[in-house]
Design a protein around this nucleic acid. Structure first.
Length: 569
RNA sequence: GCACCCGUAGCUCAGUUGGAUUAGAGCACCGGUCUACGAAACCGGGGGUCGUAGGUUCGAAUCCUACCGGGUGCGCCA
């Protein structure tokens, strides 16, 4: 149950009735503990609009609002705030009921376009943010009951594959597996020859033509290369715990056949102009350096198509074949203009129906501690496999330091969960729109808003149940919050649904991280103040139930971020 | 030149779409808590004219305008 939405509804209704106009109640969690659990801010604004004294209006709202089944009597405060404190019994029954997260959700079919690496090379840190953030969003949307269709729009087509195929052609069959084991090296070798050997470059271009015209040999070689590259990606996805499989693939090449149709459609609509031999769509709202209209080029002067055309084809596919209500694109911020243009063209050409939501959710760059783009010491790209290796190595050292008594296998497993979780959480916990600084020490710290801190909080609760010899899965007891820390923890536990809905609406997983961190700190405050196992019944059972609920919420929340937990660490 | 994003504590970041005469966390710094329901934790302290200057109003880190500073993008790569 979304308590915030419920309060908005109830108080909003009273406000509309009292003010005679539709006004949002603007309920949000209280900014300070002395103001209760939630506060309604909407009364001042409504009073201004109708020229009424805000405190008078507040009094009428209090009289008209029916909240006595969930809250203590509403309090008017300051210039016209309403302070809301939830009843302990409401907290208890709501937590006990455990309504599904999908309750009350207007279900949509949502396409989430994420990861989308270029298959010509190995996955590197540039792919990390899209992969992690997109995956978390897909999980959250799914948990809320939406139909989520993951789309991994991998780059498997284009001129660069010509040189890769030409180079592959020169390698004996026996050596191919070896050569392709390191795609980064392979790519550099091919690129080196392309730039320095005219004969090779010519063959590379010929290979592109062969590929595009459906030459069986070229196709077979290409397919082989793609398979190897995809296997690399899947290895990374598996290690990251990212739920992308071959069925989620929507490679660029899959749109090849529909590209001429897209251009023809645009032509029929009279949107196409020819400029220097290229077919373009000009839209007034986009201008170039000279202030002239900026084209979206959909077909090059040599007849080839571009990613703009492919993206338009993808929009058509997603609306007509996938029946998407909403499409979310997780790509870096530099592509912002591209997507604004593509969405505008799609709208002008009516490729997407009116109500369909196309949203680019951009993110900033990953920077090193020096504030410059995150690179290896040599200045090269950091491969994801290497990054994840280092995360596990560093976590392994920490585990060995902190808990040397655990056996080797368990230490390794904990290191894996903590190391990978730390990398993912560091990214997810920051506002995705800005650049972020990648800092090993910060993300692996057990202090502050980090994955290890949350995982630790979880493992402490599990430890409590072990110590008490209580089976958490079958444990059930009524929660009756009496101490302030118990009340605060109960309210925090109720907030998961409203936070998830906000994440889904705005595409910001860091809201969920902030929530989980707050939940964990609220829990430790409770845990410091309120003895559990040594308490007398029924307080003991009530507190155990709070602990159990907290552990489940932490695990569930982290799970929605794609982060695992361990029973001890 | 135009467009988009961003300037918040020494550092890394929040700030729920305009809310509460004390702008929050975590690092780092200073000082307290363990013969442990896990100290991998907790409690307290110092540290900010929210880039600058105006404006809008009961009320601004948040909205508007102009500057300053940083990042990114702007015709046949993706």
């Amino acid at each position: 149950m979304n308590v915030r939405a419920l309060l908005n509804k109830r108080i909003g209704a009273a406000l509309s009735q009292a003010s005679g106009a539709d006004s949002p109640a603007a309920v949000q969690p209280a900014s300070r503990p002395e103001f209760g659990d939630y506060q309604a801010n909407g009364i001042m604004g409504a009073a201004k609009r109708i020229g009424m004294n805000p405190r008078e209006l507040a009094a009428q709202v209090v009289a008209a609002a029916t909240v006595d089944d969930l809250a203590e009597p509403l309090e008017i405060a300051g210039p016209g705030f309403l302070n809301i404190t939830l009843q302990g019994s409401f907290i208890a029954t709501t937590l006990a009921a455990e309504a599904p997260l999908s309750a009350g959700i207007n279900r949509q079919t949502v396409v989430v376009d994420y990861s989308s690496p270029n298959l010509a090379k190995e996955m590197h840190v540039g792919h990390l943010r899209s992969t992690i953030i997109g995956d978390a969003m897909a999980r959250v949307l799914e948990a809320l009951g939406h139909t989520v269709i993951r789309q991994n729009h991998v780059g498997d087509w284009g001129t660069q594959f010509g040189m890769l195929l030409a180079h592959l052609h020169d390698v004996s069959d026996a050596d191919q597996s070896n050569e392709l084991a390191d795609l980064e090296v392979f790519y550099r070798a091919a690129k080196g020859r392309f730039d320095s050997q005219p004969e090779f470059a010519a063959r590379a271009r010929a290979a592109v033509v062969g590929l595009q015209s459906g030459d069986p040999d070229a196709q077979a070689q290409w397919q082989r290369f793609i398979d190897v590259s995809l296997a690399h990606c899947e290895e990374v996805y598996q290690r990251l715990g990212v739920a992308l499989s071959r069925t989620d693939l929507a490679p660029e090449s899959s749109y090849n056949d529909s590209l001429p149709t897209i251009v023809a459609t645009l032509e029929q609509q009279g949107l196409i102009e020819e400029s220097d031999g290229a077919l373009c769509v000009f839209l007034d709202q986009f201008t170039n350096k000279q202030g002239d209209p900026l084209p979206v080029i959909v077909r090059k002067s040599d007849g080839g198509y571009l990613y703009a055309t492919t993206d338009l084809a993808a929009i058509l596919y997603r609306t007509s074949s996938l029946n998407a209500d909403r499409v979310l694109y997780y790509t870096d911020a530099r592509q912002g203009l591209h997507f604004r243009q593509i969405f505008a063209v799609a709208s002008a050409a009516e490729l997407a129906p009116e109500g369909m939501l196309l949203e680019h959710h951009p993110f900033g760059a990953m920077l090193g501690a020096d504030g410059k783009p995150f690179q290896t010491r040599a200045g090269g790209v950091v491969r994801l496999t290497e990054l994840l290796d280092e995360a596990e190595t560093r976590a392994r050292q920490l585990v060995a330091e902190k808990n040397p008594d655990l056996d080797e296998a368990e230490q390794s497993e904990i290191a894996r969960v903590v190391g990978i979780g730390a990398v993912k959480y560091a990214d997810l916990s920051k506002n995705r729109t800005s650049d972020y600084v990648f800092d090993w020490d910060q993300m692996l710290s057990f202090e502050g808003n980090t994955a290890p801190y949350l995982q630790y909080a979880y493992s402490r609760i599990r430890s409590l149940f072990r110590r008490g010899d209580i089976d958490a899965d079958s444990f059930a007891a009524e929660i009756s919050p009496t101490e302030p820390q118990e009340h605060k923890l109960g309210v925090a536990l109720l907030r998961l649904p409203e936070v998830l809905e906000q994440v889904a609406a705005e595409g910001f997983p860091h809201y969920l991280c902030a929530y989980l961190y707050e939940l964990a700190t609220t829990f430790t405050q409770f845990y410091e103040a309120c003895p559990v196992l040594s308490a007398d019944e029924p307080v003991r059972s009530s507190r155990l139930a709070l602990c159990n609920h907290t552990a489940r919420t932490l695990k569930r929340g982290l799970g929605l971020l794609g982060i695992e937990t361990v029973e001890r660490m």
